[in-house]
């Protein structure tokens, strides 16, 4: 805990944004360890994969585009400090009204949670209660959140690709694959140099295991910690590792942007489709009981399909975001090269 506070203070004070990003990753990872100690294994899983993994990659991708040094000297901002201290003091005072940490009769634990804990083993038949609450009891929420991820992925694509398309029409700076000058210097995709033997070998060894692990997390999420969100992020991380080590062009051979666009919507459609299917079979929207002859089997099937949809959308959205950032870096590198000539 104290490590966390030290880490965040360092993030605040450090000048170099690269260092700040790395520290943020460390803070996320420490937070994941704390989540484990607080029994939130699924959340810790997600935090480690997202906070310490994908978000660090994204920040570094941004920094490659915008430069990594803060400009002005560190200075003491009196106004914000006063506001922060005041808000902090109010919140600190409010903690004394809070129920004590970790007691079983806190109000949080007396509303709907007991029903989830007691009935989900018989109603849903899935040992991991987090999965059953996520995909079945609160399936509407999760549908909404999947849609948010879908929207954010589309949004990043729109923001970062708009100029590119116009540029391609104007002066055809689209860097073709077979010309071999795919922005080796200064661009993210240029990271994959042919001479770095050790990363290549290690990545080749690791990536199959990452994919197998992602599939395990995806389909074992009913029984242990895991599920669509984590599996999607891990799967995307495998492809991002491939892209970082071997260059984006190779990754585009594996899965290109059109396929990503198809997948990103296919996931949401699969989720919604399960809901519509259950409606057609006479139940409510996202009521999985009717999907099979036995309600518990129906719940199993429904949760499996819904988690698959979530996994597909999350993978595709993360990849779309990553490709957009890296493609942007390539574009700028190509532009700079052109201006130099």
């Amino acid at each position: 805990m104290l490590l966390l506070i030290a880490g965040t203070m360092a993030v605040l004070l450090v000048r170099n944004l690269f260092v700040a990003t790395m520290l943020l990753g460390i803070v996320s990872f420490t937070m994941a360890l704390i989540f484990i100690s607080l029994d939130a294994v699924d959340v810790a899983f997600t935090e480690a994969a997202v906070g310490a993994g994908i978000s660090t990659v994204l920040y570094i991708g941004t920094l490659a585009l915008v430069g990594s040094q803060e400009k002005d000297k560190p200075r003491f901002a009196a106004g914000p400090m006063v506001i922060c201290l005041a808000v902090g003091a109010v919140l600190y005072y409010a903690t004394y009204e809070m129920p004590r940490f970790g007691e079983a009769d806190n109000p949080v634990h007396t509303h709907v949670a007991p029903r989830y804990i007691e009935d989900s083993p018989t109603e849903i038949g899935v040992p991991n209660m987090v999965t059953s609450v996520l995909a079945s009891y609160r399936g509407y929420d999760t549908f909404g959140e999947t849609t948010v991820i879908f929207t954010a992925g589309i949004g990043v694509l729109l923001i970062l690709r708009q100029r590119r398309r116009r540029k391609n029409e104007d002066d055809e700076t689209d860097v073709p694959l077979d010309e071999g000058k795919t922005g080796r210097k200064g661009s993210l995709s240029g990271l994959g140099s042919e001479h770095d033997l050790i990363p290549h070998v290690i990545a080749k060894l690791l990536i199959p295991f990452i994919f197998v692990f992602a599939l395990y997390v995806q389909f074992h999420g009913d029984y242990g910690p895991g599920g669509g969100f984590q599996a999607g992020v891990i799967f995307a991380a495998g492809i991002i590792l491939y892209a970082l080590v071997f260059s984006l062009e190779y990754a585009r051979h594996v899965i290109n942007e059109k396929a990503i666009l198809l997948l990103i919507s296919a996931g949401v459609l699969l989720y919604g489709g399960v809901g519509v299917a259950s409606m057609l079979l006479g139940g409510n929207f996202l009521d999985y009981n009717v999907l099979a002859s036995d309600p518990v089997a129906g719940q199993h099937l429904g949760i499996l399909l819904v988690e698959l949809g979530v996994g597909i959308t999350v993978t595709a959205a993360m990849l779309a975001i990553f490709y957009a950032f890296v493609g942007r870096a390539d574009l700028i590198a190509a532009k700079a090269e052109q201006e130099n000539n």
Binding site: D42, V43, T46, E47, V50, G51, I54, S55, L58, V130, L134, D141, T142, E145, V148, I149, A152, G227, F229, G232, V233, V314, M318
Partner: peptide, 8 residues
């Protein structure tokens, strides 16, 4: 869990 992924 969902907030983390939506957050990123």
């Amino acid at each position: 869990l969902t907030a983390i992924v939506v957050g990123i």
